[in-house]
Design a protein around this nucleic acid. Structure first.
Lengths: 193, 193
DNA sequence: CGATTAAGGCTAACACCGTTAGCCACGACT
DNA sequence: AGTCGTGGCTAACGGTGTTAGCCTTAATCG
């Protein structure tokens, strides 16, 4: 990591500026993370076990420790993937014609609901900031901050609203007959400057 | 709920209308729940183990199963306690002179931050509604709904905002230099009709 | 009073969890 | 030809929720 200049050969500058998640991992480690992700997304967090993860890769659980120091290290990679994909989705929304705050919120909600287990994994615990690619957390937050004209307090209150709506919906906390689209619209128009 | 009239003998009507959490439990079971609560609140969810819980009661883990079918049943009682206390706090705030929406929000935040582990336990999973005292969930939601003049969409958007603020703060997701009081005020004044 | 029964403890054990220690086969490089 | 890193393996440890089965005590009843 001391010298990034080696990556400038053969790689477009734009891609070099955006560190791809898991770039520091060996190919085999990336396979493990990929298997962990499908396991998590398809079968939920209780299925994400070192033994079942190894099974899906055709190896035994202890062999995983040749690639990762512990289970949390695998989870950190999944969290990094979520943050990066979230950032990409928001940046793409921002770049589109309809890139206002409602579009950002809709994109955020759609991504979270499309990957509920991953969203919860990345969200329902303190962020392991030390183990995360530097700048990734900020990058995921920037589109909303820009949409708020740089007003951090406003951005945080909108983020809290969006996260609250998404996480309560994922956990089925709203009554079955609740009109969530109406609640979203209500909150966003109120918070929208 | 077919016949509540049996409870009218010997119990004040006001208390009979408010089912106290764990009333259906034996005294020993209530002791277990109490020990589980102090364990959870003082040492976090990872310390809430059937073995350490039994240790704190001076018995062995399998003996707990004479009182509860499984660990989840103990957790359900803790969740019910949280919902009931939350309802009590909000109702008391409502009854005070300063019982407006900002006061409700502040009371909600204060309760959650005073019992972060309990709040997470009761919040970060689907509600076991079938195992909960009937009406308790609604009771906890009513003060906010009343403050919103019966507007369910508005109440849900405010609840999502408050839960998002609280849960993100508990998990240390906001930057250390963020002015959370400002974010709260910003969100509440915007959502406040 | 003696017998029965329920309550509530116990030990032993099972399957599963994350994780460690130590061994071994293979392939690449010197 | 030899060395060494890579990446697999088995065996095992301590901890988890949980079950089966036994035993003691206290209350209840014929």
């Amino acid at each position: 990591m001391a010298d990034r200049s080696t990556s400038k050969a053969g790689t477009p500058a734009s891609a070099a500026a955006l560190p791809v998640a898991g770039a520091h991992l060996s190919p085999r480690a990336r396979e493990i993370v990929a298997a962990a992700r499908t396991l998590l997304e398809e079968s939920g967090p209780t299925a994400l076990t070192m033994r079942t993860l190894a099974d899906h890769l055709g190896i035994k659980a202890p062999s995983l420790y040749k690639h990762f120091p512990d289970k949390q290290a695998v989870e950190v990679e999944l969290i990094a993937q979520m943050l990066e994909e979230c950032a990409e989705v928001l940046e793409a929304t921002e770049a589109r014609a309809s890139g206002g705050l409602p579009a950002l919120a809709e994109a955020y909600r759609a991504y979270a609901l499309a990957h509920p287990h991953l969203y919860c994994l990345a969200t329902e615990r303190p962020l392991p900031r030390a183990s995360l690619p530097p700048g990734l957390e900020d990058r995921a937050a920037l589109p909303l901050l820009r949409a708020c004209g740089g007003d951090g307090d406003l951005a945080r209150s909108i983020w809290a609203f969006a996260h609250g709506m998404v996480i309560l919906e994922i956990h089925g906390r709203f009554p079955g007959d609740a009109d969530l689209a109406a609640a979203w619209k209500r909150g966003l128009t109120a918070l929208h400057s």
